[in-house]
Design a binder for these strands. Structure first.
Length: 269
DNA sequence: AACGAAACCTGCGCGC
DNA sequence: TGCGCGCAGGTTTCGT
């Protein structure tokens, strides 16, 4: 579930339910998710109240009394809210609140990460400190400058969260299609006008996807708040063999930087 | 610096 | 039905 719109959808849904809940107990069933000694983590977190839930790029940030709990869902992380139900195979961390409600972190591939950092400077602490701004906040000049000396492809640059944050494989493909730019173009060959086009396209795509609750492909069990509808709006992603919405040329699938990439070979140049 | 591959994991769909 | 392979919305690490 991982790109910005899906994470934002989770954030909006979750905050309504868990704000003001106090953590009474934590069960860590798979410790590797937590980038800290699990007992230290549990000791620090128990007794703290969830004051707010924020997001930066693809990270969810639980604002507690003294700490920020920073969670990355990676490929398949999800949250479920339950009480007194049997624990499922892929539920790895269970936060039990004083109210009896349980927040369960579910992750089939166990790729997700949890960092606990002091609240006062979490923005300047790893991992949030590594993040670039999101497309809507990034200036064209700043973006252009970070591309101009790079020989990587523009797709790889857009996936690099230190250059621009929030985009993943789906929304990069969509952004580059809208921008009529081929994903294998060198980042340093993108001029400032094209950089502007890309940023605007990315902003629009992400905004629209957030409005529609994100994208749900490969029908996983609908997790909390993730019944997205943006998959109906996809122009190229997963559309291989189908006609390009602009020029009718069949969309092809290629590999760029190791990632499956959908592109119109005719109108993206 | 950059590229690919491997690593972290599991499950699914495909061809045979 | 079973097996092996490739693939998956992400990121880090390691070797060339």
């Amino acid at each position: 579930m991982p790109e910005l719109p899906e994470v934002e959808t989770v954030r909006r849904t979750l905050i309504e339910v868990i704000q003001h809940e106090t953590i009474e107990r934590v069960s860590v069933l798979y410790p590797n998710i937590i980038h800290m000694d699990q007992h230290e983590f549990t000791n620090l977190v128990v007794g703290q109240t969830i004051r707010d839930l924020k997001r930066k790029g693809k990270y969810l940030i639980f604002i507690l009394d003294k700490h920020a709990m920073i969670i990355h869902l990676r490929m398949e992380g999800k949250f479920f809210l339950k009480r007194n139900e049997p624990i499922l195979k892929h539920e790895h961390i269970i936060f039990t609140f004083r109210s009896g409600l349980e927040l369960r972190y579910h992750d089939v591939r166990k790729f997700g990460t949890i960092h606990l950092v002091p609240l006062n400077d979490y923005l300047d602490t790893y991992p949030i400190s590594e993040l670039a701004l999101e497309p809507k906040d990034l200036s064209v000049n700043q973006f252009y400058q970070s591309l101009r000396n790079r020989s990587i492809t523009i797709k790889q640059a857009l996936l690099d969260q230190r250059i621009v944050s929030g985009l993943g494989n789906i929304y990069v493909d969509e952004t580059l299609f809208i921008s009529k730019i081929h994903p294998t173009r060198k980042a340093c060959d993108i001029n400032d006008e094209e950089a502007n086009t890309i940023l605007k396209a990315a902003t629009n795509v992400l905004d629209k996807a957030v409005l529609l609750g994100g994208t749900t492909i490969r029908s996983y069990t609908s997790s909390l708040g993730v019944h997205g509808r943006f998959q109906n709006e996809l122009l190229v992603h997963m559309k291989q063999g189908e006609p390009c919405p602009r020029c009718q040329t069949p969309i092809i699938k290629i590999r760029v930087g190791g990632r499956g990439t959908y592109v119109c070979p005719e109108c993206q140049t």
